[in-house]
Design a protein around this nucleic acid. Structure first.
Lengths: 234, 234
DNA sequence: AGCGCTTGTCTACGTTGTAGACTTTACTCG
DNA sequence: CGAGTAAAGTCTACAACGTAGACAAGCGCT
């Protein structure tokens, strides 16, 4: 009966591939956090010996890099958009959404580059940088100015995302705001303002806050750069 | 001969204390990175059994929190400064310097809050927030607006620090810029702009870049808020 | 059928965090 | 001074981790 190929009590062992491995890794991280992503656990999740994973990633760190890459690859960037400010805005919102969808990956996005020199990063994680430089170049910025804009922009963007993810809610069921944020534990004399802000903290609207910051930053950058060109140029 | 108390080939075992433990932990992290901070290693460094550390920190995570706290406690904030923008600028530069002095701690600063609800964080890490709120309140901001300013400000600040630390140099001895940043490894067709920017990347002036961004952001925030007050208020 | 490369498995080692029972130290009180 | 107690430090042990290295199974060739 059991034909030799598609048989099996084990879930029909198909050949592994890097994509399959990384996809499962991301799934695991999303579901249970970074610590759950161990070689043994991932192997088990794939129905394979943990050691088989080393055919698709040099080591655990490389696996983590792969996961970062997988997420960043989902960030759409259109370097030919004639309206650079609108495009940067849209990228920002998309990255924010990605971060909210994969909050457990954010520490990776932020942390891994700190221990990897620019040139040695997974190419997928450098692509946004290159494409944003292209966008800004097409908008008429000099390379050095483009870099300047990129840094301020991406800096703010990452900062905002970190901020927003930090303020997450402990227990959404709780309807007393102080408790919902765990703020009741804070000594009232030392942290009066923070405690008083509980309601404001509780209904944080990340998207519009991000947008307002971007408005300020982008128009400010534009003004600064055009002023500077007027000063030095003709 | 050997008097019983101050004797000893072992380096005169004085009583431990939380401060001593944390200080040694920070020292170790600064010198050899986060991974070097294991319970066993820290114990060895202190001439004690690793298990003794558990009298001063519940577990390794709490130890890491303690290190964050230790660093953030070194950040001076003057909530009574009448010039709030100048004060925020000074805080920013001080935090930047702290980050440069303890680069290995930065991942902690950024990452630990992501897995700890606001109310459960080490108090030392919340103090900057409370104090900046006080600063802004003294400057006349409504609580909700103060929070708004804080978020944009701190977001940008953290983002900048992460950015700057990421662009660190692989090999300062190397005088070919492409090599110094490891950029030679990037495929030239896919990353033309990034490669071309090597010189600009190499002489990044983090302090002035931070300052310019802050100028834009802070004056933008001020303008936005006063405009909004003029609109709704009398 | 047989060769050779890729993929997956097995076994084994050193290292990690930490629970729990124990011993040593320091200090207080009679 | 000596007894008693609470704190500080130690010892032993365990489960889980990443991964090296030798090996087996599977596949596509001719």
């Amino acid at each position: 009966m059991n034909s030799p190929r598609p048989s099996g009590r084990p879930p029909v062992k198909a050949r592994l591939s890097r994509d399959i491995v990384l996809a499962k890794a991301l799934e695991l991280v999303d579901a249970e956090g970074l610590d759950a992503l161990t070689m043994r656990r991932l192997g088990q999740e794939l129905g394979r010996d943990p050691m088989s994973l080393y055919r698709y990633a040099e080591n655990r760190a490389a696996l983590l890099d792969g996961v970062s890459e997988l997420v960043l690859d989902q960030l759409p960037i259109h370097p030919e958009d004639p309206d650079w400010k609108a495009q940067l805005r849209s990228i920002a919102h998309n990255l924010r959404m990605l971060a909210l969808q994969h909050p457990n990956v954010v520490p990776l996005l932020v942390t891994r580059p700190l221990s990897t020199p620019l040139g040695l990063r997974p190419l997928g994680t450098l692509r946004p940088l290159e494409q944003i430089l292209a966008l800004l170049a097409a908008a008429g910025f000099q390379p050095a100015d483009a870099l300047h804009v990129y840094r301020a922009y991406y800096g703010y963007l990452y900062g905002h995302i970190l901020n927003e993810l930090q303020e997450y809610v402990v227990d959404p069921e709780e309807n007393e705001v102080l408790l919902r944020l765990g703020l009741h534990r804070l000594p009232a004399k030392e942290f009066p303002r923070l405690r008083a802000l509980a309601p404001a903290l509780a209904d944080y609207d990340g998207a519009t806050e991000l947008d307002q910051g971007l408005t300020i930053l982008l128009s400010g950058l534009e003004a600064q750069l055009s002023r500077q060109m007027a000063g030095s140029g003709a």
